[in-house]
Computed example of a mutant assay.
Amino acid sequence: MADLTTIILTYNEEKNIANAINSVLPISKRIVVIDSYSTDRTIEIVKSFGIEVYQNEWVNYSKQYQYGVNVANIDTQWVLRLDADERLTAKSAEEIEILCSENKNTEINGIIVRFTVTFMGKNLKYGGIYPFRKLLIYKNDKGYIEDRNMDEHIILTEGRSIELKNDSLHHDFKDLSAWIDKHNKYSSREVVDYFENINKLENGIKLNKSAKIKRFVKFKIYYKLPLGTRAHLYYIYRYYFKLGFLDGKEGKIFAFLQAYWYRFLVDAKIYEQNLMVKKKYEK
């Protein structure tokens, strides 16, 4: 067992939470669940494991996770941030346990987790989706979460990170309606993040390589393209240039919804916000 505390955020995750907990049980000294007042069986399932659970009103992922860190009063060397629709495999869990043990006194202060992404029951291998990388494991006194409304990352204050060789799973058992509802909420957070950060400099924040590239592309290239057109270009890039069509019908649906529904919805909400500001000043 690693000297590791796992923090899991939940809201109506009765279909996912047991799998998430079971995947980290073998390597976690402690598991803490932070729930946003679920109305399904999430709390009942968590308590059946005898695991600590706290409830807190939802603002965004960053603030909810930070609440978890504060209330848990963590005393392990390592911390793992896990979403309820994510889970470790036996191989990735074993690798994490080994790396945590081997790097107790090294400059390795973070571990990047690799995920396969499942959509409508299919593992997506193309379209630039796989592998999905996130820095989720870090030494307790060497990292913190960004205070952002969207795309928040764990930031290391010093040292460096390494990437797992074995994949973990991003597998949400909820249906497409839940996916659409979740991404509608994401789009509103994206708009807030856009206006807060479009002209802001990173000021030397130590993002891992994958996160740094994605954020640069998003704010320095994608958002510089014409509103409305960029969603179309995003689809072409994902579906054709990154071979998303090789994932079959599920790949087609995923690419279409990501571009022409989600990314275009973000653009529409940005346009709406600008329109409201313009009308306000015209009065």
Rank of each mutant, 00 (worst) to 15 (best):
D75P: 00
M120N: 15
L176I: 15
K47S: 13
Y126F: 15
H171F: 15
D83L: 03
T106I: 06
Y144R: 10
L156P: 00
Y271P: 02
A90W: 08
K212H: 14
S161H: 10
S23G: 12
L257H: 01
P131E: 09
I98F: 09
H153T: 09
M150Y: 15
I162H: 02
P131W: 06
T157G: 11
Y223M: 05
N109F: 05
E57L: 14
N149T: 07
N70C: 03
A72H: 10
Y126N: 14
V113M: 03
N22K: 15
V46G: 02
G110A: 04
K125Y: 12
D141Q: 15
H153G: 03
P26D: 08
V71F: 02
N203P: 00
A255P: 00
L265G: 02
L99D: 03
V59A: 13
N12H: 09
G251P: 00
Y67Q: 11
T157M: 08
G110I: 03
I145T: 07
D85N: 10
K269R: 08
R87I: 07
D147V: 12
T89I: 11
P131K: 05
L201C: 12
L4D: 00
F115V: 06
G228L: 07
F241R: 11
L233W: 08
I34L: 11
F245D: 00
F216T: 12
P226C: 08
S23R: 07
Q273N: 09
E250L: 00
S177E: 15
N140P: 01
E250I: 02
Y67G: 05
I21D: 01
L25A: 14
V71S: 06
E97H: 10
K279D: 10
D75H: 09
E52G: 05
N109M: 07
I221A: 05
Y186V: 12
R30C: 12
N103H: 14
K269V: 05
A211M: 04
F216P: 04
A2E: 04
F256R: 04
S187W: 05
R148L: 11
Y186I: 11
D85W: 01
N22P: 12
K182F: 09
Y281W: 12
H183V: 03
G127D: 05
E97S: 12
I74F: 05
F219A: 05
N208Y: 12
I253E: 05
I96V: 04
D247V: 03
Y240C: 11
G248P: 00
E94N: 09
N166A: 15
F132L: 13
F115H: 10
I129W: 01
F254L: 05
D151I: 06
N149R: 11
E282P: 03
I112A: 07
I253S: 06
R41S: 14
I129D: 00
L136C: 11
I205E: 14
L9P: 02
Q64N: 11
Y235S: 01
K269L: 08
G50A: 12
N73Y: 04
